[in-house]
Simulated scan of single mutants.
Amino acid sequence: MRLTLAQLEQDAGSVDTALDAAESAVEDAAADGADLVALPELFAVGYFAFESYARVAEGLDGPTFGRLRDIAADHDVGLLAGSHVEDLEASADAGYDVPDNGGLANTTTFFDRDGSLQTTYRKHHLFGYESAEARLLTAGEHLEPFEFDGFTVGTCTCYDLRFPELTRELVDDGVTLLLVPSAWPYPRVEHWQTLTRARAIENLWYLGAINGVGAFDSATLLGRSTVYDPWGTALASAGDRPAHVTADLDPDEVTRVREEFPALADRR
């Protein structure tokens, strides 16, 4: 299975322009044989554009999610559609299951090759340090792994990387590939590289960490999107400019590594 991480430039501009850039990236990745394309966290508005969250928020039946659904179907790829600001009340009105306390959420979706919505993940750990995310958004409550091309795929978002108990839950759910859409800023390069690699090593799975690039008034995203194998070896990575990060993954490799080094079976 060929995975492409689309490291996109973020700004606080037009959602439509950001979606056009995302579609162009998906089109190029599909032409290169990608089966699954992953986009960064809040790429359409920019994570640090907190004043725009309410303006761009919509339900899961809204136009942004609809456009992403069409992008997956039009290019015949699985699409981990980064994340977008979800209006939970609007989603509930459309018949979706949402957290009871409502509000807005940082929501990741995965669309299959036919554009069908396979899973929804709402960021569990909301960042508070010099960030308005924890004040503006509602935390998610559920993990929903999904099946794609021989992998059981899980997802978490950016700050979630600092909480390994969440990924242990995903291991227990059978996950063999973790995708992590992010908006990780400078100067915490070592944190980004260490935590992503550690989550791959300790769980003996593939991990695709998809970050954005670009500068905001309060922060600059550091890029460095990377695909790790189950040993924690980087298969492909980028710097801090827009890029495609592509690697071929073998679901049988996860089984082989876990049999050769059965650390998960030795947990107490």
Rank of each mutant, 00 (worst) to 15 (best):
E58T: 02
T107K: 01
T138Q: 11
T157Y: 06
E23C: 08
A219P: 06
V45N: 06
H75D: 01
F151W: 06
A49K: 04
E41S: 14
A49Y: 01
P181E: 05
S182G: 11
R188M: 12
R55F: 04
V37M: 01
R162H: 10
L19S: 04
D16T: 07
G214V: 10
Y121I: 10
R241D: 15
A238R: 08
R267S: 14
E23R: 14
V189L: 15
T246G: 08
R162E: 13
C156Q: 14
A30S: 13
T17K: 10
R188H: 09
G232A: 12
F111G: 04
S14Y: 05
A44P: 02
G174S: 10
E260S: 15
N101D: 15
P145S: 05
R69V: 01
D11W: 07
G66K: 02
D97F: 04
Q193K: 13
D70T: 09
R197P: 00
L136N: 02
A22S: 12
C156F: 15
A44I: 04
D97G: 01
A265F: 09
V77P: 03
A243D: 13
E165S: 13
F110P: 06
D266F: 14
Q193F: 01
F148A: 14
L117C: 05
Y96D: 02
G13N: 00
F65M: 06
A34N: 06
D97A: 14
P262Q: 11
P145I: 02
D217Q: 12
H84W: 04
E259R: 15
T167N: 11
E58Y: 06
Y129K: 12
P251T: 06
G102F: 11
L195A: 07
L221K: 01
A236D: 15
R135H: 10
D87Q: 04
V77Q: 05
D112V: 03
H142N: 13
H84E: 08
C158E: 03
L179C: 11
T152I: 14
V77M: 08
S52M: 02
D112Y: 04
A243H: 13
A25N: 09
H191Y: 09
R258E: 11
T176S: 15
A34E: 03
Y228N: 01
F48Q: 02
W184Q: 01
R199W: 00
L161G: 09
D160C: 08
E202L: 06
E27S: 15
D35W: 09
E51F: 03
D32I: 00
S218I: 09
R224N: 09
V257P: 07
L179F: 02
L136F: 05
E58P: 01
D100M: 00
M1L: 11
R256Y: 07
Q118S: 12
V56W: 04
G154V: 14
